[in-house]
């Protein structure tokens, strides 16, 4: 086996056409090794979910323009024909969604929905697919799985629905799991259970995973590496320790400062002033500059290159000091 990464994204651009053009993703690069978990952290509209959906080409084709390169395993995702794309989805890479109530078809039972994916990819009979569905429900620890197989999504609780969604996504043993804010719609106590379950299943199955979240706590909990996104670009990547202890980009520092965790009682939280830019034009300079407390004149001149501040720790800020430089 070669030791090239399992997933490689090069210079990914996503633009939505319509009455108003939106440059949602503006040059994203990252790589993911087998068995590794990458957390993509960012606020609403930073392009994190769009990046994730682009990996499965789930964005509406008529209104979306995707440029760059996406490779998962041996597949050049952007070049796949309709048949090959359907074979790739769910088998090589699969996805879990933010709101399981909306992501499950309301008029099919949970068992049918899992078995359907298994039948589709493993070319097995209905009985074998149902057995696999049962086995998956047991794996995600849904109580009385035989009965739940014939339950409809509306008959289950939120946490149980998300477990079912996980069972569905993992039913065909994908090499990489894409999770789009999988715990955001859940109660705080259920969030932890689901995160622990995901982390455990990821290790057991040796999958790679990409977690998209706006919650630093979640990203730290599940990830090996974190990529921080802002206005359609990754502004900083590094190991969890790098990002949390030695943040190099002012935006990352702002995010860390604005968490409740460790804040002093009675003191206002340090919020980042201003709002993210509207992305009707592709930003031609550092898009964080207008909100940045350390802004300098040259920040408005061009898009900063990624600076290697430490091994495998990159920051897209002019003021970041290169390692050993």
């Amino acid at each position: 086996m070669t030791n090239r990464p399992l997933v490689e994204v090069r210079d990914l651009h996503v633009r939505f056409r319509g009455e108003r053009n939106v440059h949602a993703v503006n040059g994203v690069d990252f790589a993911l090794n087998r068995g590794e978990v990458l957390g993509i952290l960012g606020e609403s509209g930073s392009g994190k979910s769009v990046t994730l959906k682009a990996l499965l080409r789930l964005l509406p084709e008529r209104r979306t323009e995707i440029k760059g390169a996406i490779r998962v395993g041996d597949e050049d995702v952007l070049a796949l024909g309709p048949e090959a794309l359907a074979d790739f989805r769910g088998k090589t890479a699969s996805m879990i969604f933010q709101e399981p109530m909306l992501a499950l078809d309301p008029v099919y039972t949970v068992g049918q929905q899992i078995a359907e994916a298994v039948e589709r990819h493993e070319k097995c009979g209905a009985a074998a697919a149902r057995r696999r569905a049962l086995e998956m429900l047991e794996r995600v620890r849904i109580p009385s799985p035989e009965r739940r197989l014939d339950s409809y999504p509306h008959e289950m609780s939120g946490g149980m629905r998300q477990r079912a969604m996980i069972a569905l996504a993992l039913a065909c043993r994908p090499q990489v799991l894409l999770a789009d804010e999988p715990t955001t719609a859940l109660d705080a106590t259920v969030q932890i259970q689901i995160l622990l379950l995901l982390r455990e299943l990821q290790r057991e199955l040796g999958m790679a995973a990409i977690f998209v979240t706006h919650d630093i706590g979640v990203a730290v909990e599940v990830s090996d590496r974190i990529a921080v996104m802002y206005a359609g670009r990754i502004v900083e990547t590094g190991s969890v320790a790098d990002i949390v202890r030695r943040p190099a980009h002012p935006y990352t520092r702002g995010l860390l400062a604005s968490t409740v965790h460790g804040a002093m009682r009675g003191r206002r939280l340090d919020a980042i002033p201003g709002a993210p830019p509207a992305l009707s034009e592709a930003p031609a300079s550092c898009s964080f500059a207008p909100r940045c407390g350390e802004v300098q004149p040259e920040c408005h001149a061009r898009v900063p290159d990624a600076v290697t501040v430490a091994p495998a720790h990159l920051s897209r800020c002019l003021r970041s000091v290169a390692a050993g430089g």
Partner: peptide
């Protein structure tokens, strides 16, 4: 969203 989810599982 479930239509996206159906596509995502390879239908």
């Amino acid at each position: 969203e479930f239509v996206d989810a159906l596509r995502a599982k390879g239908l």
